[in-house]
Computed example of a mutant assay.
Amino acid sequence: MSAFMSAGGTAGGYAITYKLAGYDGAQSFLCFCAYTLATLLTVQAILGIKSAVRAVYLVLFNICFILGIVWFMLCLILPMFWIPTIDMSAKLLLSVASVILCSVNISKGVELFKLRWNRVGAELLSRYYDQKHSVIEWSDMVGGLRMAVSIYIPGVPEKLNSIISVAVVLSMIVGLSLRNAFPLFSLFAWGIPIVIVVSLVVQMIGFGIGQLLVLTALEKKDRNIIRPL
């Protein structure tokens, strides 16, 4: 599934780049994507094999899967970096804003996980963790946490999330509708909402980091490697 999504996103990004930046730009984009995908999928395959022997690797495997989703969406805005008519300052501004927004959402995900774990973690451990045999039903336990992502933009009240959601959808519709008449405007109208959606998805990476912190602390406490069931 991860390979299919990543390849689909790359194909879509290639088509956009070809239309807006020409053959050379599209080929450069494709080479960049090929190296990135090869690295991501290789790491994910290794973690998939190792996930049977240690729960930490299972969590890392899941984080890589989330990165595959992120890559799928990023491929819809990455083409703008191959378009020579877009000013470098605009590209840099979008890049910095994206990194900041994603970073704070990862931190938010870790914070939300910790809050939820502090409430129900002990109960879930007693149900799903076999300390004697050092095995844990990790996927079921994480499902029991019932974590959910929500839009988080620093300085914007959460009560405005419904308005932001509508604005994101409308902007994406406008961007798609004007892709032929105003391709560059369409790319930004589509791209900025994608950045917001990406920042929403990376909250799940924060959840994964929170899981890694819990698992490594548990292994350190019990002085043993914990295997998943």
Rank of each mutant, 00 (worst) to 15 (best):
I49Y: 14
A97T: 10
P228I: 10
S165V: 08
M204L: 12
M147C: 02
L30D: 07
L40T: 03
S186T: 03
G25C: 05
A11F: 04
G9F: 05
I66W: 09
A148T: 09
Q27Y: 13
M1I: 12
S177R: 10
G155W: 00
S6R: 09
A217G: 04
E123G: 12
K221M: 10
T216K: 02
S171V: 05
L41K: 04
V135S: 06
L160M: 15
S2I: 14
V149W: 03
Y57N: 08
Y23R: 06
G143Y: 03
P157S: 00
L229V: 12
A26S: 02
L67W: 13
Y35V: 12
G48A: 08
V214C: 09
S28F: 12
I226C: 00
L112S: 05
F32K: 10
L78V: 15
G68R: 05
G22N: 06
I196E: 10
Y152C: 09
A167G: 02
S98Y: 01
M88T: 13
L93Q: 07
V174W: 10
C75N: 14
V214D: 03
L101M: 07
L112T: 09
W71L: 14
P183E: 09
T10A: 14
S177Q: 07
L115C: 07
L187A: 01
S134Y: 04
V120R: 09
M1L: 13
V168Q: 05
M88S: 00
C75D: 13
I196D: 10
K220T: 08
I83G: 07
V56Y: 05
V149S: 08
G143I: 02
E219K: 06
L76Q: 15
F29N: 05
Y57Q: 05
A15E: 11
A7M: 13
I86G: 09
V214S: 08
K114D: 10
G68E: 00
Q27F: 15
V156Q: 00
L40S: 00
R116T: 06
V104T: 01
S51L: 04
F29K: 02
E111Q: 14
